[in-house]
């Protein structure tokens, strides 16, 4: 189900980056990735600068690189695509290690890999340093429509409910000699998805009813006043996109 991810992505630590308000981090990550994507293909050293800036941020966040790399496997299907590109792309061909490959394909693959990897690492760093609940607050402060934030809030909450319900159902199934690996049992598995849906809904429905019973009307009351943001925090948040912007500008000037 992969439903447990909501929590395993977050890496518990008390760093400068963890303490930054979520909306600053989201804006920073978004700005950085936009600049990375805007970096022209064929460039080399600006990508190195981007990567360096990101590594510094990772270091400041005290999130081990191995932790992020392990979670970067989402990129694998996409890496496969990038690697295939020099072979399937059209255009003039060059010889690399004795293989004839498409030159534009090779350049595009390099840029794709660089941009994709930087994007993936940025998103993972954001996830590792921000609790889902804070992320919701941050998105609300960035003026994401309340309805979307509300749906996202329920989604985050339901991830745990669905995972727990699924575990209960699989225990019940295996204790009656059910084997999920045997294709003969797949129809049962598919049908139990519908049951899982209804059971999860009803479980979460009761929480929602409890919220309604206490006057909930669609948005959580903000209990704590938002913490004041110091200039140091703004600087820290702006650092990543600023470095990327400088690299881009440098590339435009120096070529």
């Amino acid at each position: 189900m992969g439903a447990e991810h909501g929590h395993t992505l977050h890496y518990h630590a008390h760093s400068l980056v963890h303490r930054l308000p979520a909306h600053l981090k989201i804006a920073s990550a978004l700005g950085f990735v936009l600049l990375v994507v805007a970096t022209p293909r064929g460039a080399t050293w600006p990508y190195a600068v981007h990567l360096l800036a990101l590594l510094v941020a990772m270091r400041a966040a005290r999130v081990p690189a191995a932790y992020l790399l392990k979670r970067a496997v989402v990129e694998v299907p996409f890496v496969a695509f990038a690697l295939a590109m020099p072979f399937i792309a059209t255009g003039p061909r060059v010889d690399v290690l004795g293989l004839s490959v498409s030159e534009p394909g090779l350049v595009a693959a390099g840029a794709l890999l660089a941009k994709g990897t930087l994007g993936v690492l940025t998103a993972l760093l954001l996830a590792a340093t921000t609790e889902p609940a804070d992320l919701l607050v941050g998105l609300a402060r960035l003026r994401v429509p309340a309805r979307l934030v509300e749906i996202m809030g329920f989604m985050v909450r339901y991830v745990d409910v669905v995972a727990a319900e699924w575990r209960r159902m699989s225990v019940a199934r295996t204790s009656r000699l059910f084997d999920a690996r045997s294709p003969r049992h797949w129809p049962v598995l598919a049908r139990s998805l519908g049951v899982l849906f209804v059971r999860s809904y009803e479980r979460g429905e009761r929480v929602h009813l409890a919220m309604l019973s206490r006057g909930y009307t669609g948005s959580l009351p903000t209990l704590a006043a938002p913490a004041a943001i110091g200039p140091a925090q703004v600087l820290a948040g702006a650092a990543l996109p600023t470095v990327a912007a400088l690299a881009l500008a440098g590339q435009a000037v120096l070529g």
């Binding site: 919220m211 206490r214 006057g215 909930y216 009307t217 959580l220 009351p221 209990l223």
Partner: peptide, 9 residues
């Protein structure tokens, strides 16, 4: 926070 939820609403 949980106890405050209702009165805050």
């Amino acid at each position: 926070d949980d106890v405050a939820f209702g009165p805050a609403n």
